[in-house]
Design a binder for these strands. Structure first.
Lengths: 149, 149
DNA sequence: TGGAAAAAAGACATCATTATCTTTTTTACT
DNA sequence: AGTAAAAAAGATAATGATGTCTTTTTTCCA
């Protein structure tokens, strides 16, 4: 569904939302160590996110990446737009260009409700709210590929 | 979610389920013209499906591909197993290896119900039933990338 | 003002998916 | 038997995603 690149990007943004701020910037190296993602590859992704104003960064000593309060008003959807593009979500599950409610493919009515649910979440819920709901329901996990307890 | 290869394969199987039988075999060329898929690529996929006994075929003049009644007892899941493999469905939406109900990623509880619904459909519903339900609810469409009316 | 730290940028390498092309095998029909 | 039709099989090519490496730019700090 999402590319590896996009998964890395989403995890990075959530990680930065939780652990960084204007006063606490985090370097690529530290992020990749936490998230266990390929270092130069994630650097590229963070550059892209930075160009699209989804993460903030400063160069030089003590520089690094962080999420400003403004950045936290963006959504997962914005991240997907930046990295993968969102065309794929418009496409039929079986690849039929003309598939729609009038002219449904065999799995159309199974897939569409899911799409609407998850895409609404991605589109409407800000990063800030995402993090808040994770904390609220004890869903905070290390995004690292390790046990969190 | 599914590769192009797998989408082509599923569409081919459904197409053959509707339009072929032991007495009416269909050649690769005719199938690719209907489905608008790359000809040699689909040929490879049909070979694979044939090896896994998901479609039947005969060589020589008047030969071609078809679905026997036995073939129609298979499922979409079997097709996915044959072409893409099903590992991807076990993986977390954000790529976290340890994501589960105890230790959920931020989208876990949004994604899981969908997965269960659609995978149950793929796993339990035979091709035969799929075709029947398409007909029953007037969802029969040409699988071709064209208007069907 | 010089050195070091860090992101930014660009060029390059690798791999899987997608797709094509050619040859071989099987089979029906004359 | 010979020929043509069709799938089967194998080799090759093109593309995009993934990943790495090197150089440049910016900025802090001594």
């Amino acid at each position: 569904m999402l590319s590896n690149a996009c998964k890395y990007a989403i995890r990075s943004v959530l990680y930065l939302a939780i652990h960084s701020n204007e006063l606490k910037k985090i370097g690529v190296k530290a992020i990749t160590e936490e998230l266990e993602t390929p270092q130069p590859f994630l650097a590229k992704l963070l550059q892209q996110l930075s160009r699209d104003n989804l993460v903030s960064s400063t160069k030089g000593p003590n520089g690094g990446f962080f999420l400003s309060d403004i950045d936290k008003q963006n959504t997962i959807w914005n991240v997907i737009e930046s990295i993968d593009g969102t065309d794929k979500f418009d496409n039929c599950f079986l690849g039929l260009k003309k598939c729609n409610g009038e002219n449904p493919c065999p799995v159309h009515f199974i897939v569409v409700p899911f799409k609407e649910t998850i895409l609404a979440d991605f589109r409407d819920k800000t990063i800030e709210k995402y993090v808040a709901s994770m904390e609220g329901t004890r869903q905070v996990i290390t995004l690292k590929d390790l046990d969190s307890f």
